[in-house]
């Protein structure tokens, strides 16, 4: 997915997930905006978030890692 990476639904809202949070498949991790379309990106594995690799509101490209998740 190519677009702009957002950690929350709107700037006022809290981030979807942060370091230390447990996630399971289907949990929304972030939003990538492309051509005014907001695409929710869901976790594909369950585990604990170890690191967020991209700063909020920065551009991302195809195949770019966004989160480090320690699988459980």
């Amino acid at each position: 997915m190519i677009g702009t990476f957002y950690r929350s639904a709107t700037p006022e809202k809290p981030v979807f997930k942060t370091v230390g949070d447990d996630v399971k498949p289907g949990d929304v991790l972030c939003i990538i905006e492309a051509m005014k379309l907001f695409n929710e990106i869901e976790a594909e594995v369950s585990g604990k978030i170890v690191k967020v690799l991209v700063d909020d509101a920065s551009p991302v490209e195809y195949d770019q890692p966004l989160f480090l998740i320690d699988p459980s």
């Binding site: 190519i2 492309a34 551009p59 490209e61 195809y62 195949d63």
Partner: peptide, 21 residues
């Protein structure tokens, strides 16, 4: 900007990815 995997239908021919880039 990386726009997709090797097949051109998923990258060099993928209009939405190029416009997003």
């Amino acid at each position: 900007v990386c726009i997709g995997p090797a097949p051109s239908t998923e990258s060099y021919l993928k209009i939405q990815n190029i416009i997003a880039a």
